[in-house]
Amino acid sequence: MVHGEFGEVGVLHPGAMGAGVAAQAVAAGASVRWLPQGRGAATRQRAERLGLKPAASVGELAATCDLVLSVCPPAAALSVAEQVAAAGFRGVYVDANAVSPERMADIGEVFEGTGTTLVDGGITGPPPREAGSTRLYLSGEETAVARVSALFDGTLLTPFPLPGPVGRASALKLSFAAYNKISYALAAHACALADGHGVLDDLLDLAAQALPGTPLAGTGRLASAGPRAWRWEPEMREIARASREVGAPAAFAEAAAETFARWEHHKDDETVTGARLVADLREGRAGPDARPAGE
């Protein structure tokens, strides 16, 4: 029997993180479906490699699955929920996207009166590849949360149920990201400032001694933000929205979103350098002709 007593599990969509989540559901013994329609070649290859079963439509996925996990860019979270609800889904729906509690309330309205149980999910860490690196926080209806948690018990995606309603997991996820990811934007800004005044090497030497292990300790560390900036930019918008909900300043997140927007053309490019990212900021625009710092 599959942990959590789920039969078919649907994952929308198996990008880098979604594929990692799907892999852990497979490891738990679940039969996992996905929706190939409109997805790119890289996504198809990941799904095939994991042995995911294709669904011909959202309707087929909704009819055959009793658990659907949504793992997509934040801007698409509401649209994906609407598609699943319109298809007549009646199981447990986990929205595991980096959205604000207010956005989760919007998603809750989509499923209101449909017979679907909404669980709020927040993923922290990289795509799960080793024990202890990635957590799945869950909040909402207690029985549904317990079932989803049981599915992933013992996998590389460690479940952490939170007592309380939908919205709590999202709030925790965004609060952590507000510190963790904005720190990359702040480090990039400091490097751009230092580079403009000719003291970048001195700044990196100082940071390596005073702040080891941080994005400021070397442009090699900073570089990891480039391929992910296209996903981080909308996440910053959600953080800004969540900040305004509680009266906290939203300017930090908005500024980080502006920074990450300048790096969006580096999507999934693992070869981009920290110098390249610093140059993008100094040029005041993103583009292939921006000159890397020090070149």
Rank of each mutant, 00 (worst) to 15 (best):
V21E: 05
G287S: 05
H266N: 12
E141A: 13
I107M: 03
A217G: 08
A248L: 10
R129D: 12
G108N: 11
R231T: 03
L12D: 07
H265L: 11
P161H: 14
R291T: 14
G91M: 02
A207Y: 01
W230Q: 07
A178S: 14
T155G: 07
R103D: 07
V26Y: 02
G198K: 10
A207W: 00
L211A: 15
L12G: 08
V278R: 04
A250W: 05
F152M: 06
G218S: 15
T219V: 15
T219R: 07
S70L: 07
V278I: 15
L52P: 00
E141T: 14
A290F: 11
A207E: 04
V199H: 12
E5P: 06
A253Y: 03
R276Y: 08
A47R: 07
G287R: 03
G247S: 10
E112P: 05
P128R: 13
T259K: 01
L35T: 02
Q37R: 15
A240G: 15
L136S: 05
W263N: 00
P36R: 03
V148E: 09
A177L: 06
L136V: 07
A293N: 09
D280C: 11
R262H: 10
S183E: 12
R33N: 06
E235H: 05
P128V: 09
K267W: 10
V278D: 00
A223P: 01
Q209W: 12
P101G: 08
A42F: 01
A248C: 10
E8C: 14
R39N: 05
K53V: 15
A194H: 08
A178Y: 07
G213K: 15
G122I: 01
V278H: 00
E141H: 13
E48F: 05
H266V: 12
R46Q: 01
P161L: 13
G59M: 01
E8Q: 09
A223E: 07
K53A: 14
H189G: 14
V94T: 07
A98F: 06
L222S: 02
L61M: 10
L174F: 05
G15F: 00
P101R: 06
A207I: 00
A190G: 10
A261C: 09
G198Y: 11
L156I: 04
V9R: 00
A190R: 02
N97F: 03
Q209E: 15
G284C: 08
D120Y: 15
A242D: 01
